[in-house]
């Protein structure tokens, strides 16, 4: 049994700040590797190859100059997995997370893209509030994952409440169709996160969580990994390619996460990420 442990909100604030800075400036290693690989393998479409190389160069420049990889530094989603033996001291954990985001977006010269009201649309000037998902897990540690996501790709997400008797073929068809509709608008090569099961809202959350898994790792369940591979092929066969120029670079990876669901349903949520898939994590 792990011992009880106290964590100060100030520590959480500092870590969120650090993770926001890191994720917006340094492209995830698995994503950069995948970009380099697809750039190397793109041999038949010289313009697409040139543009893929430009993305690799862009990642280098952002890291060297310590500036944002993409100007859309996104709406920040923060996932917190808090051990049941953790006691938070010094204030409210959600306030601390928001303070960390605000600091990072000021210090990092990131774009403040959040408006306070979906109708009145006045910019808050701080890139907050962010979205916080808090889970309680066993133990006395606290894992924090930060994912800033731009809205060019976020706008292209879709959800379908399918029948429980739907075939794998039908599920895959919906996922492929979602990418077809996005076309070249959301900055391919994409990474696709898919949530299967749960409720409507939980499937959407799973599709986000799916984007956190390294794109070179398949789901540990064989039947789901099979779907990931099948979808990767089907989506690349759309031949949208970087900037819509065709070629082999429509998707870098497809990640699926699943959850238990109801006898009457099969929620399917698809989150599309652009090639600048950003996230960073730390454990306290």
């Amino acid at each position: 049994m792990s011992k009880r442990r106290e964590i100060e909100t100030l520590e959480i604030e500092k870590i969120v700040e650090k993770l926001c800075l890191k994720s917006n400036i340094i492209l995830r290693a698995d994503v950069l590797r995948a970009l380099k690989k697809v750039c190397k393998n793109e041999t038949k479409n010289p313009v697409a190859k040139k543009m893929l190389q430009l993305l690799v160069d862009n990642a280098k420049i952002a890291e060297k100059e310590k500036i944002a990889i993409c100007q859309d530094t996104g709406l920040v989603t923060v996932f917190i997995e808090m051990g049941d033996k953790v006691i938070i001291r010094g204030g409210n954990i959600v306030d601390a997370v928001n303070k960390g985001v605000k600091e990072a977006y000021q210090k990092g010269y990131f774009r403040k893209s959040i408006v306070i009201d979906p109708i009145y649309r006045v910019n808050t000037g701080t890139n907050t509030p962010c979205i916080v998902h808090l889970d309680v897990v066993k133990g006395n540690k606290c894992k924090i994952i930060v994912m800033p996501k731009g809205f060019g790709s976020e706008n292209k997400g879709r959800i379908s409440m399918m029948n429980p008797t739907s075939s794998i073929e039908t599920i895959e068809q919906f996922c492929v169709e979602t990418v077809k509709i996005a076309g070249p608008d959301a900055c391919p090569p994409y990474v696709i996160g898919i949530g299967l099961g749960g409720t409507m809202d939980f499937a959407a959350l799973l599709s986000k969580r799916a984007l956190l898994r390294p794109i070179n790792l398949y789901n540990s369940s064989k039947h789901i990994a099979k779907m990931e591979k099948s979808l990767e092929k089907k989506i690349n066969d759309l031949k949208i390619g970087i900037m819509g120029l065709g070629g082999i670079s429509t998707v870098l990876g497809v990640n699926i996460e699943t959850a238990s669901t109801h006898i009457a349903g099969l929620p399917v949520a698809v989150s599309i990420s652009c090639h600048a898939l950003r996230s960073a994590s730390a454990e306290i």
Partner: peptide
């Protein structure tokens, strides 16, 4: 486009939007 604020250079990141 909607750029990020300038740091050392005249402008921050400034790619296109949809």
């Amino acid at each position: 486009a909607g750029p990020t604020p300038a740091k050392k250079h005249v402008i921050g990141s400034c790619g296109p939007t949809t």
